[in-house]
């Protein structure tokens, strides 16, 4: 009977250390909560969606890998299928404001609209707080949080790490598979996979 004192201790340390990249979210652990505003200026908090399955998608419209999945309509189709089943889909752009790829909220909203995206909300995370809390490394980088608030999937959108849109047809969509497992009450068969794409454009430090 090992009653670990480490768990509460690490929580204390995480709080003391602030939002660093040192202790990002782990699969099987409670997903870090966050509050921010979306591209329409509306307040959005992860706790708003208690009891629902949530998908987080790291997005940067200027990244070729993001364009692969939007240009082929793969991302939009995944979003539509998920939200139709009551899943909450949050697209997060963690590009810092000084970066050439940065899009202000209005421009980001316009881009999502032009792509026919079906995300529940699009969040601007220019200070990278949410991205660092989740350890988001690439665009796209995908996360699934179950109704209990546990992170149950972290990884790539699919298993074909390339920039070629033709690969979408033959790839296995990891997010669709994870959502199918979660909604059927099964453990996620592949809870962690390789995320691939451009680096998230964080501010230094």
């Amino acid at each position: 009977m090992k009653m670990s004192l480490l768990a509460p201790l690490s929580v204390v340390l995480a709080c003391a250390g602030g939002a660093t990249f040192a202790t990002p979210a782990a699969v099987g652990q409670p997903a870090p909560v966050f509050s921010t505003t979306d591209v329409d200026g509306k307040a959005v908090s992860l706790t708003d969606f208690k009891g629902r399955t949530v998908v987080l998608e790291w997005v940067n419209p200027e990244c070729p890998y993001v364009r692969k999945h939007y240009g082929s309509a793969n991302m939009q189709a995944t979003q539509k299928a998920a939200t139709a089943k009551g899943v909450v889909w949050l697209a997060v752009n963690s590009t810092e404001a000084r970066h050439v790829d940065y899009k202000p909220p209005a421009a980001m909203a316009a881009w999502m609209k032009s792509q026919g995206a079906a995300a529940t909300a699009t969040l601007i995370d220019a200070d990278g707080k949410i991205g660092r809390a989740y350890g988001a490394r690439t665009t796209p980088h995908m996360y699934v949080i179950d109704a209990r608030g546990t992170l149950v999937y972290a990884g790539g959108i699919d298993d074909k790490p390339s920039a070629n849109p033709a690969d979408v047809k033959t790839a296995t969509n990891h997010v669709t598979a994870a959502l199918a497992d979660v909604l059927a009450g099964r453990p996620v068969a592949q809870p962690a996979t390789r995320p691939y794409g451009c680096s998230v454009k964080y501010a230094d430090g």
Binding site: G28, R148, V188, P191
Partner: peptide, 13 residues
Amino acid sequence: AIAVPASTGAEAT
């Protein structure tokens, strides 16, 4: 294991 237990107890494997 990286596995996460199922979120609802609805079904057996």
